[in-house]
Amino acid sequence: MLSIKGLNQYYGQSHTLWDLDLEVVEGACTCLMGRNGVGKTTLLQCIMGLLPVKSGSIEFNGAPIEKLISEKRAPMGIGYVPQGRQIFPLLTVEENLQVGLPARPDRSNKIPEFIFELFPVLAEMMNRRGGDLSGGQQQQLAIGRALAIDPKLLILDEPTEGIQPNVVAEIGDIIRRLNEEIGLTVLLVEQKLPFARKVADNFCILDRGRQVATGEMTALDDTLIKRYLTV
């Protein structure tokens, strides 16, 4: 579904992504892993068009997107939950969810009911401002907002960061449900190894902007963990 080949990206004179390849298989959950500062968020921002790429290709469902402006990518079916959630704190829960609706292919202006089935707390807080929610509730809102566009690919950047354990467990269960029950493809950045093992089918490890290991999650062994993931 998502194919990245030979991707290079720079911050000024700093070469941040080096000839990077990544294949995200349709219907699977792929976890992008690595220590802080190795380029995981940079890669996601390149996929979403928030950062320019120097060279290489990004294809989504067979169509090249590396030169498209960011506003064109969500309507193609890419939902994005950035690190830190970035909900609109002064808008209500309902208004936050409505933000993504213009990107829906069917142009529906109705928030999908299944979002409230996944996150009942959002239905209870429709008129509450986003900034008044707890961290866990804001994360659920951010995921709900991404799902409102009816994506084919859901990209999540560290969805468990700063979230209480019970909500982390709920989010993990929801990712598996979306992946297994409706076949939603998921690309996940996650540093918590137990969570990654729970939800992901495949992994890709980055180190200093390069892909250094990839495979099925069952192949993530102690040698790789010690070399590339432990601090």
Score class of each variant (00 low, 15 high):
R73S: 09
A74N: 09
A74V: 12
P75Y: 03
M76G: 10
G77W: 04
I78D: 02
I78W: 01
I78H: 03
Y80P: 05
Y80L: 15
V81E: 00
P82A: 10
P82E: 07
Q83F: 08
G84P: 03
G84V: 12
R85E: 07
Q86V: 13
I87F: 02
I87D: 05
L90C: 13
L90K: 11
L91N: 09
T92K: 15
V93M: 03
E94R: 14
E95Y: 11
E95G: 07
V99L: 07
G100E: 04
L101K: 09
P102G: 11
P102S: 10
R104I: 15
R104H: 10
P105W: 06
P105A: 07
P105K: 08
P105I: 05
D106H: 08
S108K: 09
N109A: 15
E113Q: 15
F114G: 12
F114N: 14
I115G: 05
F116M: 07
F116L: 08
F116R: 05
E117F: 03
L118F: 15
L118T: 03
L118V: 11
V121M: 10
L122G: 06
M126P: 00
N127R: 15
R128C: 07
G130L: 03
G130C: 08
G130T: 10
G131H: 11
D132K: 12
L133C: 14
G135D: 10
G135I: 15
G135F: 15
G136K: 08
G136V: 09
G136N: 10
G136Y: 11
Q137M: 13
Q137F: 05
Q137P: 05
Q140H: 08
L141D: 07
A142D: 06
G144K: 02
R145I: 14
A146N: 08
L147P: 01
A148R: 04
I149P: 01
I149Y: 05
D150V: 15
D150S: 10
D150K: 12
K152D: 15
K152N: 10
L153F: 08
L153G: 04
L153N: 02
L153M: 14
L154V: 14
I155K: 07
I155H: 04
D157H: 06
P159Y: 01
T160F: 03
G162I: 11
I163T: 05
I163R: 00
Q164A: 15
Q164S: 15
Q164V: 05
N166H: 14
V167C: 06
V168S: 07
E170P: 00
E170W: 02
E170D: 13
I171K: 07
I171S: 08
D173W: 09
I174M: 11
R176N: 13
R176P: 07
R177K: 13
L178C: 08
E180A: 12
E180Q: 15
E181H: 13
E181F: 06
I182V: 13
G183P: 09
L184I: 13
T185W: 00
T185G: 06
L187N: 01
L187C: 02
L188S: 10
V189T: 06
Q191L: 12
Q191H: 14
K192A: 12
K192P: 00
L193Y: 03
P194K: 04
F195P: 01
A196W: 00
A196R: 00
R197Y: 12
R197D: 05
V199M: 05
A200Y: 05
A200H: 03
C204N: 12
I205R: 00
L206A: 07
L206V: 12
D207R: 11
R208K: 13
R210V: 09
R210G: 14
Q211L: 14
Q211G: 09
T214L: 08
